[in-house]
Design a protein around this nucleic acid. Structure first.
Lengths: 162, 162
DNA sequence: AATGAAATTTAAACCAT
DNA sequence: ATGGTTTAAATTTCATT
C-alpha cells in the first residue's frame, strides 16, 4: 500500500482537490517540485488508491431529482450483510455502518419519486435483515463532496456543489 | 444555467467520472465528437456547475479516521442559513437540507475523536439556528460516493474501516 | 454553438543520479 | 525517489460556418 504521506504529497492532493486538471507543470511551479516528480508522485497516489481524479456531476442537474438518505435498523448481527447487499445496488451512492439509532445509513440517487418508491417497496424488502427504515429526502444539496458511480452508458450520473 | 443535457453531454460525463484526466483527444476518439467540441462542452459543464473535475482522496488513507453523520434540528426558517454556514467549513464533506426528523444532515471528516469533539462543541455552537444535534459515527464505510472501482452497477467497495 | 487548423504548451518516456 | 532532457501529444487560441 502507501506508507505515509509526506508534506509534498499533501500539497499535491490539496491542489488537485481544487482542480483535478491542473497541469503538472503548473503544479510544479506552484510548489517548486520538478514536474517529473509531481507526475511520479501523483501517479503513485493514484496507483495506491489514495487519490482518484474524477468528474463529479451534480445529480440534481443531470436528471436525478430525488436524493434521499435512508436510516435503517437491522436485526442483530445482520447490519454488515445488509451493507454488503446494498452496496451492490446501482441506486446507492453511500452505504455506511453507524452507531446511534440507525445501524446503517444509505444514500440513494433516484430519477424521480416513482423510482424511489420502487426502491423502498420492491428492492429493500428483498434484503434480509432490515427491520425498519426512515427516509430523509434531500430538498437541497449545499455541499456534496463525492461522486456517484456511473450507470450504464448513457445514463446520467454524479454530484458536486449545488 | 444549463438547459438540458443531451446524449453527448451524458457520455462525456460518464467518461470523465471514471477518469477525470482523460485527454480530450482520447475522448474525441472514443465518442467520435471533435476534440474541440469535447473541450467546449466540458468547459460549459464546468462553468454551469454541472460537472467538477477534482481529486478525491480517501480520507481513511490520509489520516482522517473519523467520519460521522450529524443530524440537525434547526430553528424555524434557519435551516438554509445553517447549511450555508456549514458548507464553508473544511470539516464538512456533505451538507443537505432534508425532510423528516432532521432539517439538515451533515457529514464531517475528522482526524480523530478530539477533532470531532471540537467540531461538535466549539464550532457548531457558533452557527446560529441549530437547536439539536444527533451524531451517527461511521464504523465502516461500504460504499463511499466516488466509489473506488466505479463501474456499472456497483462494484462492491472494499469496506473501509472508519 | 460548433468545428477545424494553427501555434503553443504539456505530458510521456527515457536516463542519470 | 528525484531531476533533467527530448520527443510525441495535447491544449489553447482563433478563424470559420
Amino acid at each position: 500500500m502507501m506508507p505515509d504521506l509526506d508534506d509534498i504529497d499533501r500539497r499535491l492532493i490539496a491542489i488537485l482537490q481544487q482542480d483535478g486538471r491542473r497541469s503538472f507543470k503548473d503544479i510544479s511551479e506552484e510548489t517548486g517540485v520538478p514536474a517529473s516528480s509531481v507526475r511520479y508522485r501523483v501517479q503513485r497516489l493514484e496507483e495506491t488508491g489514495t487519490l482518484q481524479i474524477v468528474g463529479v456531476a451534480d445529480p440534481l442537474r443531470i436528471g436525478f431529482d430525488r436524493l434521499a438518505l435512508i436510516g435503517l435498523k437491522c436485526e442483530i448481527g445482520k447490519a454488515r450483510q445488509v451493507c454488503e447487499e446494498l452496496s451492490k445496488r446501482a441506486e446507492t451512492s453511500y452505504v455506511v455502518l453507524t452507531t446511534g439509532p440507525f445501524d446503517v445509513m444509505v444514500e440513494v440517487v433516484c430519477r424521480d419519486v416513482a423510482h424511489y418508491t420502487e426502491f423502498l417497496h420492491e428492492v429493500l424488502p428483498t434484503v434480509d435483515g432490515i427491520v425498519h427504515t426512515e427516509t430523509f429526502f434531500v430538498l437541497e444539496a449545499y455541499k456534496l463532496a463525492y461522486g456517484w458511480g456511473v450507470g450504464d452508458s448513457g445514463t446520467p450520473t454524479p454530484p458536486a456543489e449545488a
